[in-house]
Write a protein that binds this DNA or RNA. Structure first.
Lengths: 220, 220
DNA sequence: CTAAATATGTTGTAATTGCAACGAAAGGGG
DNA sequence: CCCCTTTCGTTGCAATTACAACATATTTAG
């Protein structure tokens, strides 16, 4: 079984910290490990916590239930990924999502205050952790803002154009490759795959863009 | 003219810091102030920066231009509000939006590293600033995630139900008041106002919910 | 290379939505 | 109380999209 440090070196929260510096820091972060079996709830929506979760092994889902009892899977997390950090740092009293263990999983919990508040001088790299947390939150912010810009267009056509324009700007070229297949892009844009294909076909007919598989070219 | 400290006490970044402690900290944050006239660009998309902006007075817009030259207004900021923080902290090399001064504005720029890295012991409250930044980013994350959950529903009907379910859960009751008028809710859900009214009317007919003005009740 | 599996495009239909225009309701002064 | 403004619901219509089902193309595995 992999050691905790070994796994955490690959977690964004411990980026830039040497593996042998992690172990001694865990005490300071009040880390506690817990195992969950397959199909067990790690956290129930509506409860409170002051701990940030990290998946050490296994796989967990973030689930939201509406008032009529319909469940939506918001995310699926694997090794090294964080959960709950935004709610805990944002001081949400009742966390509105559940966390569910899809497979047998080892979860590490870190105390929020300890994680974001570097200790005076005791742990050399403790400061890196809070700094990494800032980066993680900022980058997630950027990602969410981008997707929101696309999703807030009224028509699928405009969503597609918004997404492709963005991709072109990032690539610095009117010709670029996207990291999605059609189904993936449809999901990202919250649309039906065949409707997406139709819209893309129409845009090609109108000579607004051209594409072959995942390679696109924006005309004019 | 209001002093900088006076304005900053009302900025979320300086929450919990006494007004007379702000002034001495500004040096440490490498704060620089600059005035912009009406209709002047504060920042052009595609450039780089390592500074976080704060609107001291006036009003600025965050603008995004697509590859075809269409502009979208992403946000409009007033006194005390931050801009650029996610991009700067997230280490984005080329910032993809422009910042535009709608009116004559005073802008304060803070050095990212200095803002995020508390100094050893020099400024008593410097640590609060980086902690506040974490909270700001986390809360914005929550807000963005919530809206995305609604926007990622395929139909307007489902967007509406998703939003109202969330509102009910937050209120802790099936009866609650929403902070939007119809046009506001339509904008939030990226839909047409009259289409929203129609959907709400239909949901009422189907006895899935009831409403009068901004007061809603979810049935069953 | 072939068969199977997967991904993409196409078609038809029903439903939803955007859009514009209008009328009713609610709210705010004077 | 009335006028004015704003908000909200309704209607008709055109356009878009979801959805299902199928055809074609591409990839993968054997």
């Amino acid at each position: 079984m992999k050691s905790i440090s070994e796994i955490l070196t690959r977690s964004p929260l411990f980026k830039g910290i040497a593996e042998n510096s992690i172990e001694p820091m865990l005490n300071c972060l009040r880390a506690r490990e817990k195992n969950y079996s397959k199909n067990e709830y790690i956290f129930h929506a509506g409860a409170s916590t002051a701990e940030i979760g990290i998946v050490l092994t296994g796989m967990v889902q973030i689930i939201k239930e509406d008032v009529w009892g319909n469940n939506t899977i918001l995310a699926q997390l694997t090794e090294g990924m964080l959960f709950g950090e935004a709610f805990v740092i944002g001081n949400t009293d009742k966390i509105p999502v559940s966390v569910y263990s899809l497979q047998a999983s080892r979860i590490l919990f870190l105390d929020k205050e300890k994680t974001v508040t570097p200790c005076k001088a005791a742990c050399e790299f403790h400061y890196n952790v809070s700094h990494n947390m800032l980066e993680i939150l900022a980058q997630k912010n950027i990602f969410l803002t981008e997707r929101m810009e696309h999703l807030s267009k009224r028509t699928l056509r405009d969503k597609v154009l918004s997404y492709l324009s963005d991709a072109a700007q990032k690539a610095g070229s009117r010709e670029f490759t996207i990291p999605f297949d059609r189904q993936g892009l449809a999901d990202y844009l919250a649309a039906d795959r065949s409707a997406l294909s139709a819209v893309l076909g129409k845009l090609k007919d109108e000579e607004i863009l051209d594409f072959k598989k995942n390679k696109f070219y924006l005309i004019n």
